[in-house]
Design a binder for these strands. Structure first.
Length: 215
DNA sequence: ATCCCGAGGG
DNA sequence: CCCTCTGGAT
């Protein structure tokens, strides 16, 4: 079975298991999703969703956040970790939006990654979920780990993983695939103790075995 | 002790 | 390529 066929079979099973999987970062606008995604670095989305309501109430848009005091933003996002970096990124990213895009979130990879604190992962979240035109599959820690266990990549670098995965699935599935993979990575294929005994991919579709966790 | 929807700098 | 940034949950 070619990797492409296997990837499609895997995604079909995930699709049946998580129909309608969508973005788990709470947001009402593109700007809110951009902020939430920046905050999601090395942090659970549940934690992000705890801090964003207060954040958006106080600073509802790019203009407001661009004018915020850095110390206030640091305090507001502290529990998400990396809080100094994130606060600085949020304020200068907002200033970038105001200065270069009239306060609106741009719709190209080039413009998005030029924003402070926005890399390919965050940009693909926006391009896929807001504009429906992703440049690539969103590769976070879950997607990278699962792709390696599934034998669909041998790379650790998320950019290389993205390049390896993209050609395996139709572009229309990229965004949904990331959402499904994230749910699956949380529920069964966890970093520490993957529950291979209850995994629907275990026979034939996944070369990984839980025994390898101890090798 | 390890992991969580990473990005920037050296 | 490497390193650093960081709190909360398990």
């Amino acid at each position: 079975m070619t990797p492409k066929v296997r990837a499609k079979k895997i995604d079909a099973i995930l699709k049946k298991r998580y129909p309608g999987a969508s973005c788990s970062l709470d947001h009402r606008t593109p700007f809110e999703l951009l902020v939430a995604t920046i905050l999601s670095a090395q942090c659970t989305d549940a934690r992000v969703n705890m801090v964003t309501p207060g954040l958006f109430q106080r600073w509802p848009d790019a203009k407001a956040l661009a004018g915020a005091r850095l110390a206030d933003v640091e305090e507001a996002v502290r529990s998400t970790g990396f809080y100094k970096n994130k606060a600085k990124a949020l304020v200068s990213m907002s200033a970038d939006l105001v200065a270069r895009h009239g306060g609106q979130v741009p719709d190209t990879m080039e413009e998005l990654t030029a924003l402070a604190g926005v890399g390919r992962k965050t940009a693909n979240v926006i391009l896929g979920n807001v504009f429906g035109k992703p440049d690539g599959i969103v590769v976070d820690t879950h997607v990278g780990r699962l792709a390696r266990r599934w034998g669909l990549t041998v790379n650790d670098d998320p950019v290389k993983v993205e390049a390896d995965l993209g050609p395996l699935l139709p572009r229309a599935e990229w965004t949904g695939f990331s959402h499904r993979a994230i749910l699956f990575g949380r529920e069964l294929c966890q970093a520490k103790r993957p529950v291979c005994g209850r995994c629907p991919l275990c026979e034939s579709l996944c070369p990984w075995s839980d025994k390898q966790s101890y090798l």
